[in-house]
Amino acid sequence: MTSIRKATTDDVEAIVELMYEAYAPIRDLGIQFESAYPTRDKVKDNMEQNLCYVYEIDNTLISTISLRMPWSSNPGPYYFPHIWWFATNPQYKGKGIGSEVLNFIENEIIKQGFHSPAVTLGTASNHPWLVEMYERRGYQKFGSKDLGKGHITQYFIKVLNSDLFCGTDSLRQKFTDVTYEEAEYGI
């Protein structure tokens, strides 16, 4: 039986283990994602500051994903929920679980639950396949930033409800023109 639910403190150890295994290729590429170096404290902090979900099969944690909310102490770079700390157990690669988790978060949580018209995420611009994967899923590049981690972070946005995305053309232009600092600090 499969389920997607909010993570609890009972999940911390399993999330640390899952993320460490899932992010091994990221560490091998030399990309310095914070999520590639999970610790108990970092996972607990993530769960306290953000919305953290887990995907289970028969009570075994297979995937996790977090949302940084615009009103939290750790918002994403723009005005919408921001996906981060997304990982799936490498033993389940190619089985569509990552897509199922993203679909659930995009549609059930962000679009229907929060009525947010869009979602953002960031990844290393030099990652060999993540940029193309997110573009295939309908994400569009809208900004980048050197966060001092040895790579350029490429930001993406996906419009989930164009009816709620009022002034779509002007908002899209705004996302094209604005820098990370301007969006983050309202400059």
Rank of each mutant, 00 (worst) to 15 (best):
L147G: 02
M1I: 08
S3I: 11
D10Q: 11
E48A: 15
F114S: 00
T2V: 10
P70W: 06
S162Q: 14
F86N: 03
H115N: 11
G186Y: 01
D146E: 04
Y155D: 15
S162H: 13
G186L: 09
L121Q: 04
D41A: 12
D10L: 13
E181S: 11
F142V: 09
T60Y: 09
N74G: 02
T88H: 00
L164I: 00
M47Q: 05
E106F: 07
K93L: 05
N161W: 02
V12K: 07
R27L: 10
A183M: 13
Q32K: 14
F104L: 07
L67C: 11
Q91C: 07
K145I: 13
K42Q: 08
Q140I: 02
A36H: 02
S63C: 09
M1R: 10
N126T: 12
M47H: 09
Q173D: 15
R40Y: 14
S162E: 15
L164S: 04
I4D: 06
I57F: 07
H115V: 00
T153S: 14
D169H: 06
T179M: 07
W84Y: 12
H127R: 08
I109M: 07
D41R: 02
F114W: 12
R27K: 14
L171Q: 14
K174Q: 10
W71D: 11
I31Q: 04
F114V: 01
D11I: 10
